[in-house]
C-alpha cells in the first residue's frame, strides 16, 4: 500500500469518526467518553457492556448509534423466560411444492449488525451463553449447521447495577468476552437542561445515517494496521501482569484484593483499543497514554476481587487506578 493510500485512509477514518460523533452528539448529551468507548469497540471488533442506573440513556445511545450507522439493527429485551432459540433463531418445518416437509432455519434477532442486548443479566445463563457464544465466534450453531454472522457484528449489552433481585449476574468467563465495560454516569445540571430541551419539545432531534457497512469494515482494517512499538506493547503486558496477585510483577493492591487478574484477552483489548484511540486522536503510533486511556474500560470487568476487597469496598477501578499510577510507562 502506498503512502498516498495510507494518508487517504487515515483521513477517511478521522472524518468518519468525526461524523459519527457529531450525529450521536445531537441526541446523546455529554458522556463523550462513553460514546468514544462504544466507537472504539465497534472499530476494534469488540463488544461492549454498558452499565448504568435506569434512565441515563444506555438504550438511547445504542439506538442512536444504530440510527447513525447504516447497519441492520435488532434489539433483544432479556427476560427470565427468554430462550436461546429466541435469540439465535429456530428451525421450523416447512413444506415444499411437492409436499415434502423440510426444516427451514428462521434466523433470530442476533442476525444483525448491531444487536442491543438490553438488561442482559435478566436472562438465564443458558440464554446468555447463546449470545456470548455468538459474540466470541461470530457464528451461530443451530441444528446441524453453523451459520456465520454478517460483519460487522457488534453487540451492546446493557446492565443495571441496581435491582439485583431475580437477575443472573454474568460469570467472569462471560464478562471477559466483552471488549469494554463502560459506565454511564448521571448527567450534571447543564447536561440535564440540554436533555430536557431536546426531549420535551414536539420534535426530537433526528440523526442522519452516515456510515455504511463497507466503510466501517475499512475503518476496522485501518485500525488494525496501526503499528505498535515493542516498548508500548511491553507496557500493556506489564499492566496486565500487575493485576495478577501471583505474578512477580503483581501490584501490591492486586496481591491484597484480587483473586484473579486480567486475561490475555484483556491485553489484546488494551492494544486494540489503544490503536483506535491513537487514530481517533490523529496519531499513527500508539503511545503509553493511549494504553492508559483504555485501561479502565478494558480491564475493569476482567478482575475478580476477593472478599477482602468487598469488605473494604475496594472496586476494580480503584485497583486499576493505583496500578496505572505506579507502573512505569513505556521504557
Amino acid at each position: 500500500m502506498s503512502d498516498v493510500n495510507v494518508e487517504h485512509r487515515l483521513e477517511q477514518f478521522r472524518s468518519n469518526v468525526r461524523l459519527v460523533r457529531e450525529e450521536v452528539g445531537r441526541v446523546i448529551v455529554g458522556n463523550d467518553a462513553v460514546i468514544d468507548g462504544v466507537l472504539t469497540c465497534l472499530l476494534a471488533r469488540g463488544h461492549v457492556l454498558l452499565e448504568g442506573i435506569p434512565g441515563v440513556g444506555k438504550t438511547k445511545l445504542v439506538q442512536t448509534l444504530a440510527d447513525a450507522l447504516r447497519l441492520k439493527f435488532s434489539r433483544i429485551q432479556f427476560t427470565p423466560d427468554l430462550m436461546p432459540g429466541d435469540i439465535v433463531g429456530t428451525s421450523i418445518v416447512r413444506e415444499d411444492e411437492a409436499g415434502r416437509k423440510y426444516f427451514e432455519f428462521q434466523p433470530g434477532p442476533i442476525f444483525a449488525n448491531l444487536v442491543l442486548a438490553d438488561e442482559v443479566n435478566r436472562a438465564t445463563p443458558k440464554t446468555q451463553s447463546a449470545l456470548l457464544e455468538a459474540m466470541q465466534d461470530n457464528s451461530v450453531s443451530a441444528g446441524n449447521a453453523t451459520r456465520p454472522l454478517e460483519q460487522p457484528f457488534f453487540v451492546l449489552a446493557t446492565m443495571n447495577p441496581l435491582e439485583m433481585e431475580g437477575t443472573y449476574p454474568l460469570p467472569e468467563a462471560q464478562l471477559d468476552r466483552f471488549f469494554f465495560k463502560l459506565r454511564m454516569g448521571f448527567p450534571g445540571v447543564d447536561e440535564l437542561h440540554t436533555v430536557l430541551d431536546r426531549t420535551t419539545l414536539a420534535a426530537e432531534p433526528r440523526v442522519e445515517r452516515t456510515l455504511a457497512q463497507g466503510e466501517i469494515l475499512e475503518m476496522r482494517e485501518t485500525a488494525r494496521e496501526v503499528p505498535v512499538a515493542r516498548p508500548v506493547q511491553d507496557y500493556a503486558i506489564r499492566l496486565t501482569l500487575a493485576t495478577h496477585p501471583e505474578s512477580e510483577l503483581g501490584h501490591e493492591m492486586a496481591r491484597r484484593y484480587v483473586r484473579f487478574g486480567a486475561s490475555p484477552r484483556g491485553t489484546q483489548a488494551l492494544i486494540l483499543g489503544a490503536k483506535v484511540h491513537a487514530l481517533m486522536h490523529d496519531r499513527l503510533h500508539v503511545s503509553g497514554e493511549d494504553i492508559r486511556a483504555v485501561a479502565l474500560p478494558a480491564l475493569r470487568h476482567r478482575l475478580l476481587v476477593n472478599f477482602e476487597a468487598e469488605a473494604d469496598r475496594i472496586d476494580t477501578d480503584t485497583i486499576l487506578q493505583r496500578i496505572l499510577a505506579d507502573v512505569a510507562g513505556p521504557a
Partner: peptide, 21 residues
C-alpha cells in the same frame, strides 16, 4: 507521546510496511 520511542524501535526493524513508513 512516545512517538520518538516508537520510531527508534521501528528504525531497528527490517522491512517496514506502509503504515510504519
Amino acid at each position: 507521546e512516545d512517538e520518538l520511542k516508537s520510531a527508534l524501535w521501528f528504525s531497528r526493524q527490517p522491512a517496514p510496511n506502509a503504515y510504519v513508513t
